[in-house]
Design a binder for these strands. Structure first.
Lengths: 205, 205
DNA sequence: TTCTATTTGTTGATTAGTAAACAGATTTCA
DNA sequence: TGAAATCTGTTTACTAATCAACAAATAGAA
């Protein structure tokens, strides 16, 4: 059963609140924000805020929750795309469709992601995002690798690669997205496949 | 008696409509716009449009009307500022406070002014704006000039200077406001005082 | 010219947001 | 420590926007 589409004022009001939230978080950090700040910046009645959120912590929770809901959906779509192509012979050095879609999603939510992952953001969000990336990669790597052949344990490898991805994401957001999502995904897959030393020109084989 | 402040939803809805109007005018020109276009782009209910405007011609009329209301107010403020300073000895080559405020106003309403004065805009608005500038200048010049000393009739002079101002305004808007309102006002007053030939370096005295 | 598609202008019941007020809690300042 | 300022959470009656539908008008296509 399809979820009833939200009426326009609800969508509009929440967007106003979220945009104000993002701006204030960048400006003064989450802790210093008040509900009065939010509704003043969003230019809505203070009582209206409480029609949508319990308090500012609820706003943070729901905002981050929606990000991960969308990321889950992106992960599923990317997986379906791979399955529907019936081409399991793509090389491991090709960008994962998921990673391309991830960067596209980041581009669409640039302001919020830049702030939440920035110095005035929420450290636990960063942790959560890294866990999410790890989970996706663990699943993907498990289908390709034989643990007997590995020089280091799989979970350490995935920790390495997912942290690297997160660092690159943050660098990209801070730069104001100076490269396209496709370029970013390609860059990451190249570095992951050949290794940082190789792509830095320090090692040849 | 102070006019009652409009409730937020009214202000918000009208801004949505005006912004959509500006965007569509630039994209396809006034004639090609439909009310359905407007409310789709503004993301409001079509019936809501009719709560605010009779039809799209009413929207145009009210939009332009507000511009001139604001311009009138700016003209009065500028005049008061001059009077309150008790300094009637400012030189005629100094930028008029009104012209500075005019450019600041244009900057605040950049999108709309660029469109309405552009190729897809409304020619009659341009005429109206020029008349407005002429009226302000006629008033100002009348206070400074002795018609006996003039080489050409005052109304022709004012037509020359006001048309020049409008042309410069349009150039500025098309360039995306590459200079500050203060710079623009100064440039205009210099050119007006010394004459185009002088400021072009073609004539010295 | 006729038919189809789109737009218009309006309507009514409902939803969502609103202004303003209130009491209590928290923060800031002297 | 106490006073003042600010913020919070809630409330109520009202306003504004909403969805969806309808009939008529207009525009576009065949």
């Amino acid at each position: 059963m399809e979820k009833k589409k939200m009426d326009r004022p609800i969508v509009r009001t929440r967007r106003l609140i979220r945009d104000a939230f993002t701006g204030l978080m960048e400006e003064k950090g989450f802790e210093a924000i008040t509900v009065s700040d939010l509704t003043e910046k969003a230019d809505i009645n203070r009582g209206t805020f409480y029609l949508h959120y319990k308090d500012k912590y609820d706003l943070l929770e729901q905002s981050e929750g929606e990000i991960f809901e969308e990321l889950d959906r992106i992960g599923e779509e990317a997986w379906k795309a791979v399955n529907q192509n019936y081409t399991n012979d793509l090389q491991v050095e090709q960008p994962l469709p998921f990673v391309i879609k991830l960067f596209e999603f980041l581009e669409e939510n640039f302001e919020f992601m830049k702030v939440i992952l920035g110095p005035n953001g929420n450290p636990s969000f960063q942790v959560r995002l890294k866990e999410f990336i790890k989970k996706k990669m663990l699943y993907k790597f498990s289908n390709f690798m034989n643990e007997e052949n590995m020089v280091i344990p799989l979970d350490y490898l995935v920790a390495y690669v997912s942290s690297a991805h997160l660092g690159v994401i943050q660098c990209w957001l801070e730069s104001g997205m100076d490269r396209s999502p496709q370029e970013m995904a390609h860059m990451l897959s190249q570095t992951t496949f050949w290794g940082p030393a190789h792509v830095a020109g320090l090692r040849k084989n």
